[in-house]
């Protein structure tokens, strides 16, 4: 049966923060529970009915009392709100130097891709002390990436990218759960997070034999899907060049603009007609069904590697497109 614990392990920088907030709320909750229970017990005994003919004096409500017991709890809840919102806000802002990892949920497994090309299923190996940023999506229904020891949880929603980040503080092996009900084997969609000492992590990285980095694989897909025929690097193709695209603001035909982020690139691959770059015709066919979510992520990573943000750690795939990707 295992031993009885009351609190989960703390293994990320967020874990102690969330727990401290919990202790505050617990204190408030226990205090009010004791006040209410105590008052009910005391009054129930002290003022118990001794004769059926009893008629108590009417005690009129006092506005002062009503205000006191509205304002004090309200003040406390505002502390809870502010404290909780500040943690939440930081949880939504991954640091720039975070290690990017891509996660695709599907019934019923977690498929994980590392930047260097390593792939894992239902396991995630990460180095201790380094901020980790997850970009999540789903191939089918909604899933949720939940690591209790990190106190983080983020839904993986089909059709969009979401992010989650954490910085592990303790080496070890931690539960990964799917927290959003996703069908028959929902409770089987679990796995392990391995937080490793940096040198062990390096050994693990080299021990795996990846088939090329994520951007490399993206570059290969870019070739195989014949994207390169139109998206020529020098801008002479029928479609806009993708060099230096990532992170820029793109002017759209019909007015408006959009920031070229992961979601925009994904949408442009799967629903090309949704947002067409100004000056170009909506001639691109959809790649829905032709490329997997993992493949899309590889393509996204390839586009990122073409700049201008120094997102990729490996050298972009020169030669394949004949471009000069370093141009910034």
């Amino acid at each position: 049966m295992g031993t009885l614990r009351l609190f989960p392990e703390q293994a990320s920088t967020f874990a102690p923060e969330v727990d401290h907030l919990l202790y505050f709320l617990l204190t408030v909750a226990v205090f009010f529970t004791l006040v209410i229970f105590g008052a009910i017990f005391y009054f129930a005994v002290r003022y118990r009915r001794r004769s059926d003919q009893e008629l108590p004096h009417v005690v009129h409500g006092g506005m002062a009392l009503e205000i006191v017991w509205s304002v004090i709890p309200f003040g406390l809840t505002m502390v809870m709100f502010t404290w909780g919102a500040s943690i939440f806000f930081r949880e939504s802002r991954p640091p720039d130097d975070a290690l990017n990892i891509y996660v695709v949920g599907k019934q019923w497994m977690w498929k994980i891709q590392h930047m260097e090309g390593q792939r894992e299923i239902n396991e995630l190996h990460i180095p201790l002390g380094r901020a980790i940023k997850l970009t999540l999506t789903s191939e089918d229904v909604i899933h949720s990436f939940f690591v209790p020891a990190f106190r983080t949880k983020q839904d993986a929603v089909p059709g969009r990218y979401s992010t989650s980040w954490f910085q592990p503080t303790k080496a070890g092996k931690y539960h990964l759960f799917c927290a959003e009900y996703c069908g028959n084997r929902h409770s089987g969609m679990i796995g392990w997070i391995y937080v490793m000492e940096p040198q062990d992590y390096q050994a693990w990285l080299t021990g795996e034999s990846p088939t090329g980095s994520l951007a490399d694989n993206g570059a290969k897909l870019f070739q195989d899907l014949a994207c390169v025929n139109c998206h020529k690097a020098d801008g002479t193709g029928r479609c806009p060049s993708l060099v230096g695209l990532f992170g820029k603001t793109v002017q759209l035909s019909g007015g408006g603009s959009v920031k070229a982020d992961e979601a925009y690139i994904r949408e442009s691959i799967l629903q090309p007609a949704a947002k067409v770059v100004a000056g170009y015709q909506p001639i691109m066919p959809t790649f829905q069904g032709l490329v997997t979510e993992e493949g899309v992520l590889q393509l996204v990573e390839y586009v990122k590697s073409l700049g201008p943000k120094p997102a990729a750690e490996t050298s972009p795939a020169e030669g394949i497109t004949g471009s000069t990707p370093g141009k910034r």
Binding site: E17, V18, L21, L22, L25, M80, F81, W83, G84, A85, S86, I87, F88, E91, P148, R151, T152, K153
Partner: peptide
């Protein structure tokens, strides 16, 4: 209702 706790 508390964001930081509800995420967990």
């Amino acid at each position: 209702a508390c964001l930081g706790i509800d995420v967990h």
